[in-house]
Amino acid sequence: MRSTLRKTVLTLTAVAVGIGAGTVATPAQAATQKADAGCVTGKKLLPSCGVLWGGAAGGFTGKPRDLEHRNWEKLSGRTATIFHTYHKGNEPFPTKAEIAMTNESANPRVLLTNWKVEYGTTWAAVARGEQDKRIDAFAARAKAYGKDFFLALNHEPENDVKPRAGSGMEAKDYAAMYRHTIQRLRAKGATNVINVVALMGNEKWMAQSWWKDLYPGDDVVDWIGLDSYSSVEKGYHYGDFATLLDRKAKGKNALGFYDWAVTKHAGKPLMIAEWGAYHQVGRKTDKSAVYNDVVAQLKKRPEIKAIVHFDTKKDDQGNRDISINSSAKSLASFRKLAANPIFNVKLG
């Protein structure tokens, strides 16, 4: 009896302190070890579990993005691990402010930046190599930065398509621009750039014959992104969080955006690169129905690995409020969402 008890104690002790290195853990032990380790990002910033939480604040205000991001974090009650910014053309980035934001050990963050590499020219011109100097300069800055970060090339390209032969801005030109830019960045050694193709998932655009031509190819896409919003007032795009994921062109064989991504491009992680709930400026319509739906939808849709809220009191059209604090009830619901442990993901 004593001998059996001693063996049991020694075995439990060995497991607890890690004695017996090199042995294969049982499935139960492996699950326990994973739970103890927590959710953490790995290759291509993919979380081992959970969902990355992000924010884009200060849009259309002219205020510094870093300051607005910190203010938004305080308002929401959680550090927004993904810090979302926007650049175009020859603007030098990562900027000093972006580097500082992603160097804060007390508030770990990773950069997501949108870049209109073709600014001042066309997608076709970039694909022909006419902006290689611009791409190479960015590659050098990215390598000097050293950390992995997300890059979206010309997010929401549907708005910029000119479906006219020779325009240089056809959907196929976007795909060619994207391929050329990513291939050149890789050739220049900027392997810390994790790219995101950020589309709109708008049923109007998904119905266009050219929409399918936008996708650059799985070999040059790391993450698939979606920029999509829901109205909390009846009318255009009224609905909850699920509705912004499932918009589709009319037709019995059409797929909603999420289903399109996971069916046509299986294995690609999905990022909701911009999302939010909106109502007319000046009103205080409650947004809780959208916020309360988020976690349930994420649990149903395991390929969504990151969500990034876009926050502004007035959008580019000037009439939509996408802020989380347009009413006290909305803010309370959003803070409850932000506190959910599904977003407890550490940067590896």
Rank of each mutant, 00 (worst) to 15 (best):
6 R>V: 13
79 T>S: 12
185 L>A: 06
53 W>D: 00
240 D>M: 02
151 L>G: 01
214 L>V: 03
129 G>W: 14
102 T>G: 03
44 K>I: 00
191 T>L: 03
281 V>F: 11
50 G>T: 11
40 V>Y: 02
67 L>Y: 01
343 F>V: 03
265 H>E: 01
71 N>M: 03
71 N>F: 00
133 K>T: 15
104 E>D: 15
109 R>C: 07
65 R>W: 08
10 L>K: 09
324 I>M: 14
77 G>D: 09
164 R>F: 08
200 M>K: 09
183 Q>P: 11
159 N>I: 11
208 Q>C: 07
23 T>H: 15
338 A>H: 04
335 R>S: 02
208 Q>E: 14
174 Y>A: 07
21 A>M: 09
131 Q>A: 14
190 A>P: 07
257 F>D: 03
17 V>E: 09
257 F>T: 11
92 P>F: 05
106 A>H: 06
191 T>W: 03
38 G>L: 06
198 A>V: 11
20 G>R: 05
216 P>Y: 06
207 A>T: 05
216 P>L: 07
146 G>A: 00
166 G>V: 02
159 N>H: 10
211 W>Y: 15
11 T>N: 11
224 I>C: 03
105 S>L: 12
249 A>I: 06
165 A>R: 08
124 A>F: 10
110 V>G: 00
239 G>Q: 04
195 N>I: 05
328 A>P: 04
264 K>M: 04
262 V>R: 08
158 E>Q: 13
297 Q>M: 05
340 N>V: 00
120 G>I: 02
278 Y>V: 07
308 V>Q: 13
98 E>D: 13
50 G>V: 10
31 A>P: 00
142 A>S: 07
240 D>E: 08
21 A>G: 12
